[in-house]
Amino acid sequence: MSFRQKTAKYFSNHAETSENHIDPTLQTHYYKTTRDKGLSLLENHFNNNESYHINAISKGHGEISATIIKGKKAFVVATVIMVRPYQTAIDFSVTTESVLPFDLGYSTKIIQQLYQQVNKELPIINNTNRR
């Protein structure tokens, strides 16, 4: 990552994952599971964590939206897409609510924590094994 990209990461109030993201921690993660199991896992995680409040669940679209209500406020959207049988992609988008137009990397940290939690529960598929 260039200096400009590192600076932009800290001086923004939004972070999201993508297939070919410059930051390796914000690249889409693939898991050996079904879409329903992935959605269920995220739903349980948000329900069992008092910091989160689920706003909506769209099983048809494979999305869950939640709000972080303890500490710094943020809005989280998790998208679960089944690419192939037992190959499911999970992406996150986090926007921090603050008076300032930046969050000093807080939204990126939330995504990293969510991926760590999912990695404990589901078998991850490495990029080299995906193709």
Rank of each mutant, 00 (worst) to 15 (best):
Thr28Leu: 15
Ser65Pro: 00
Ala56Met: 13
Lys72Val: 15
Asp36Asn: 14
Ile69Lys: 15
Gly38Asn: 10
Tyr52Leu: 02
Thr28Asn: 14
Asp36Cys: 07
His53Ile: 11
Lys59Ile: 07
Ile54Phe: 01
Lys32Tyr: 00
Leu42Ile: 02
Asn49Glu: 04
His53Cys: 13
Ser65Gln: 12
Thr28His: 11
Arg35Glu: 15
Glu63Thr: 14
Gly60Met: 07
Gln27Thr: 11
Tyr31Trp: 01
Thr33Gln: 05
Leu41His: 06
Thr28Lys: 14
Thr34Gly: 12
Tyr31Gln: 10
His45Glu: 04
Ile64Ala: 10
Leu39Gly: 05
Ser65Thr: 14
His45Ser: 13
Gly71Ile: 07
Lys59Phe: 00
Gly38Pro: 04
Ala66Asn: 05
His53Lys: 13
Phe46Ala: 05
Ile57Gly: 06
Ser40Arg: 12
Gly38His: 02
Asn47Lys: 13
Ile69Glu: 11
Ala74Val: 07
Ile69Tyr: 04
Ile68Cys: 09
Tyr30Lys: 10
His29Lys: 14
Arg35Gly: 07
Tyr52Ile: 02
Glu63Tyr: 00
Ala66Trp: 03
Ser40Val: 00
Lys72Asp: 15
Thr67Leu: 14
Ala56Ile: 01
Leu41Gly: 12
Thr34Glu: 07
Asn44Leu: 03
Glu43Ala: 04
Glu63Met: 10
Tyr30Gln: 10
Lys73Trp: 00
Phe46Cys: 02
His45Pro: 00
Tyr52His: 01
Gly38Arg: 05
Gly38Asp: 12
Ala74Lys: 06
Gln27Lys: 14
Lys73Asp: 09
Lys32Gly: 08
Thr34His: 03
Asp36His: 08
Gln27Ala: 11
Gly71Cys: 12
Lys59Cys: 12
Arg35Ala: 13
Tyr31Ala: 11
Ile57Leu: 08
Ser40His: 12
Tyr30Ser: 10
Ser40Gln: 14
Ala56Asn: 12
Asn47Phe: 00
Ile57Cys: 07
Tyr52Lys: 02
Ala56Val: 09
Arg35Lys: 14
Phe46Arg: 03
Ser40Tyr: 01
Ser58Pro: 00
Asn47Ile: 01
Asn49Gly: 02
Asn48Gln: 07
Ile69Phe: 09
Asn49Lys: 06
Tyr30Ala: 13
Thr67Ala: 15
Lys72Thr: 15
Phe46Gly: 01
Lys37Val: 14
Ser58Cys: 09
Arg35Trp: 06
Asn55His: 09
Ile57Asp: 08
Arg35Ile: 05
His29Thr: 11
Ile64Tyr: 06
His61Tyr: 09
Ile57Met: 05
Ile64Thr: 06
Arg35Tyr: 00
Ala66Leu: 06
Thr33Val: 08
Ala56Ser: 14
Thr33Ser: 04
Glu50Cys: 09
Thr28Ser: 15
Asn49Arg: 09
Lys73Asn: 12
Lys72Arg: 13
Ser58Asp: 07
Asn55Met: 13
Leu39Asp: 07
Lys72Glu: 15
Gly71Ala: 08
Ile57Pro: 03
Asn49Phe: 01
Leu42Met: 03
Lys70Trp: 00
Ile68Phe: 02
Glu43Thr: 07
Lys59Ala: 15
His29Leu: 12
Ile64Gly: 08
Ser51His: 02
Leu42Val: 03
Ile69Met: 11
Gly38Glu: 12
Lys72Ile: 14
Ile68Leu: 11
Asn49Tyr: 01
Ser65Cys: 11
Tyr31Thr: 12
Ala74Ile: 05
Thr28Ala: 15
Ile64Cys: 08
Lys72Cys: 13
